[in-house]
Design a binder for these strands. Structure first.
Length: 754
DNA sequence: TATAATTCTCTTTTT
DNA sequence: GAGAATTATA
């Protein structure tokens, strides 16, 4: 369903969805049965706005799901009248699935999706009202920055003084304040800002010409659409009689405005959030949205304060940390669970030792506490920190998955392939065109490309049109003209095929084949090219999977290719989280939002790393503290925080002092561990002395020295023999029944057999 | 025009 | 210490 269906059109014979019946009321009882009082009050709320202040682990997802079930079961809403905004596509799918269990297949008519997906869907439907075409491209950050850069060039602005990224950032902030280029120019004074205003103006013009939107546009243009076309606003507002929003604390002003436009009249706005978990201020999220919600919408509120996730100790630690923030809505989280284990704070020499320690602890958790890898997550402040960890985990044969970071879809070959497909849907997209016009090499270099774009600009044509008739471009060599004609034929042929609306995977394969892209890679005969081909094959696999799911669900009005492109561009990091395999999960603290694990490690707890030095400079420490709060409260049973004495950043080694957040955790909750001195680690207990010995420049700590042939005893695997010794104190041990395992001599629970 | 070599910048966090 | 961007060379 791509636009709201009128109530008449969606009336279905599905029993139990109409007015409350006996079936309905028993269903309602079922929905409320295992909820606590506060949760029940939230779910049973009548009409009008409600703020659910949900502390960490207080069951907010459950409340949201039940609320939807309640709306449907009592007949307060039909499925098509519900708009539920979640933080990730994955969360949306899960929620839809759960509601489906409660209320049946009609749940598919609900709109459960992220802000960006919902906006894209609305915009596709009414693109013409804003002078866009429905096949508009969605530019990711890299594409947008590229466009900004192009604008800088066109305006003859020095990109050294005005870095494209920075300028894009300014434009983004302006958009998130709903300030258009014109108003921006009026309200700005400095030279810098005036220059940005020039770029902003041109950028908007070019984006429109390219039939392209950036991430901010998806939200802003939807607001524009509703303000410009009251008929549409009314239609959607009337249709979405119940709007529900998860993670409300992270909404920004544009999203706030959108919610206002949609729910202003009926006021059925049900938001769930926790001000203590507001961590997207840098993305213009406005914490006042939640702090002022009650006043703004004249809302009632419900507090969920019982925590069902963590031990008392973990909860105490999180409360102690967050209580150092001034600006917050008081909440008193409590739990029925027992005290549990103390919080571990580990001090290590450097990031390598830190990684080894984490790897060792993960093994130990499995052996001693029966906590499987799936139940373990490691969080860090910046993506760069994952590298050392990954290297170490590979060395120790600990399977893992990294969420976010440098993504599959950012690889050059993947972006190229996607650019081809994008071009088929949106021929006006010159950023995609520029990506593929000479990739693979077909003899259209920078010069020819520049001439083409330049002349298209002067004629006021889309470059793709000119491409069909390249003789019109002055100054082109015969070879270039010929190459362009061939390229145009390629695109035209593929576009025709795309219009047929068949399998995306087949179309992608045809594209990669006919363009000569794969061939060019094969000709390289290098390992890297080999890898790229594999990546592209993986992309074909993704497309094939999409094809299959689509034929199953098959209710979209978008052409398959368009839908595929949109799905990929609005992917969220958490969407590729896997839970069914035995993998340790690695991610940034930001990506950890909304998740939970039996055991959590937070590494790099040093001032400057976490809290990040920039936040210290910019005075956004409270947000960093909330980030710490988010991280800590992800843990159910075990929590370990580590910091290193030395850490190399940018290649240079610096020394770090423990994060101030560590000091905010009361000592009585903590068990300290420090790896210094001649310890073989285990058995001595992690609570031992924290005597820190050496400056350890590049420190090779004393260790259990093992050689090939030595007999050892492992705490859980029993007796074994060393079969190899690898760099970094890794030993390969062959155990009786277990086969061979790689272990860290320093940390694995092994001893020399005597 | 395409490659190789060299210099320079960046690092928060993300849809 | 990696990536992009720029410059030098074929």
């Amino acid at each position: 369903m791509a636009e709201p269906v009128t109530p008449d059109a969606q009336r279905s014979p599905d029993e139990g969805l109409g007015a409350p019946t006996s079936v309905g009321s028993s269903r309602v009882e079922q929905l409320l049965a295992d909820l606590n009082q506060a949760q029940r009050r939230a779910v049973e709320h009548g009409e009008g706005p409600l703020l659910v202040l949900a502390g960490a682990g207080s069951g907010k997802t459950r409340v949201l799901t039940r609320r939807i079930g309640f709306l449907l079961a009592t007949g307060m809403a039909r499925p098509g009248e519900i708009l539920a905004i979640t933080f990730t596509n994955k969360a949306a799918d899960e929620m839809r699935g759960r509601v489906e269990e409660l209320t049946g297949a009609a749940a598919r008519l609900m709109w459960v999706m992220t802000f960006h997906s919902a906006c894209a869907r609305i915009l596709r439907q009414h693109a013409d009202r804003l002078g866009y075409k429905r096949g508009f491209s969605i530019f990711d950050e890299a594409d947008s920055v590229r466009m900004v850069k192009r604008c800088l060039g066109e305006l003859d602005i020095d990109p050294k003084r005005f870095p494209p990224r920075t300028v894009k950032g300014q434009i983004s902030l302006a958009k998130n304040r709903l300030t258009d280029a014109e108003s921006y120019r009026e309200e700005q004074g400095s030279f810098f800002e005036e220059t940005v205003a020039d770029v902003y103006t041109l950028y908007e013009k070019r984006m429109h010409e390219n039939n392209a939107m950036d991430f901010d546009d998806l939200l802003v243009r939807t607001v524009n659409l509703f303000e410009l076309c009251p008929d549409l606003r009314e239609r959607y507002a009337r249709n979405f009689r119940h709007v529900l929003v998860d993670e409300y604390q992270d909404t920004n002003r544009v999203q706030y405005r959108l919610l206002q436009l949609l729910s202003g009249e009926h006021g059925n706005l049900f938001v769930v959030g926790d001000d203590s978990q507001s961590i997207y201020g840098f993305r213009a999220a406005d914490i006042r949205n939640i702090l002022d919600f009650q006043g703004d919408f004249d809302a009632t509120s419900v507090r969920l304060e019982q925590n069902y996730r963590s031990t008392q100790t973990i909860l105490d630690a999180s409360n102690a940390v967050i209580s150092n923030n001034r600006d917050r809505l008081e909440k008193d989280l409590w739990t029925d669970a027992g005290a549990g284990d103390p919080v571990t704070i580990a001090e290590l020499q450097d990031e390598h030792e830190e990684a080894r320690w984490v790897a060792g602890e993960i093994d130990r958790l499995a052996d001693e506490a029966g906590i499987a890898r799936t139940d373990v997550a490691v969080f860090y402040r910046t993506n760069a920190q994952s590298r050392v960890l990954e290297d170490t985990l590979v060395r120790f044969d600990v399977p893992y998955q990294v969420i976010g970071g440098t993504k599959f879809y950012e690889r050059a070959e993947i972006k190229d392939a996607m650019a081809y497909l994008t071009l088929l849907v949106n021929p006006q997209d010159t950023v995609s065109l520029a990506r593929v016009i000479n990739s693979p090499r077909r003899g259209i270099g920078k010069t020819s490309e520049g001439r083409l774009l330049g002349h298209a600009n002067t004629l006021g044509l889309a470059p793709i049109e000119l491409l069909a008739d390249p003789q019109r471009v002055p100054g082109l060599g015969a070879a270039a003209v010929k190459a362009m004609t061939r390229f145009e034929e390629l695109i035209a042929g593929l576009a025709e095929r795309a219009a047929g609306g068949g399998s995306v995977a087949e179309l992608l394969e045809a594209t990669l084949g006919e363009s000569g892209y794969i061939e060019a890679l094969e000709a390289e005969r290098t390992i890297e090219a080999e890898g790229r081909i594999e990546n592209l094959q993986e992309l074909v696999g993704v497309a094939a999977e999409f094809d299959v799911n689509r034929t199953v669900e098959g209710d979209s009005e978008l052409a398959p290719l368009e839908e595929f492109l949109e799905q990929i561009s609005l992917f969220t990091a958490q969407d590729d989280l896997r839970e069914d395999e035995e993998l340790v999960t690695l991610m940034t603290l930001h990506n950890a939002k909304g998740l939970e694990y039996r055991a959590v490690f937070i590494i790099g707890c040093e001032d400057g790393v976490f809290p990040h030095s920039r936040s210290i400079d910019e005075g956004t420490l409270e947000e960093e503290r909330r980030l710490a709060y988010v991280g800590i409260t992800r843990a159910r049973e075990r929590l370990a925080l580590s910091h290193a004495r030395r850490r190399s950043i940018f290649g240079a080694t610096g020394s770090g002092i423990p994060s101030r957040f560590l000091g905010e955790i009361p000592d009585r909750l903590v068990e300290r561990h420090s790896t210094v001195g001649p310890t073989t680690g285990w058995g001595l207990g992690a609570g031992g002395g924290s005597s820190f010995a050496g400056p350890g420049a590049g420190g090779q700590e004393p260790t259990l020295e093992l050689a090939v042939g030595d007999d050892v005893v492992h705490a859980s695997f029993g007796e074994g023999v060393v079969t190899a010794v690898e760099p970094g104190n890794v030993v390969v041990v062959r155990f009786g029944g277990e086969g061979e395992r790689k272990l860290m001599a320093d940390y694995a629970p092994i001893q020399r057999a005597s």
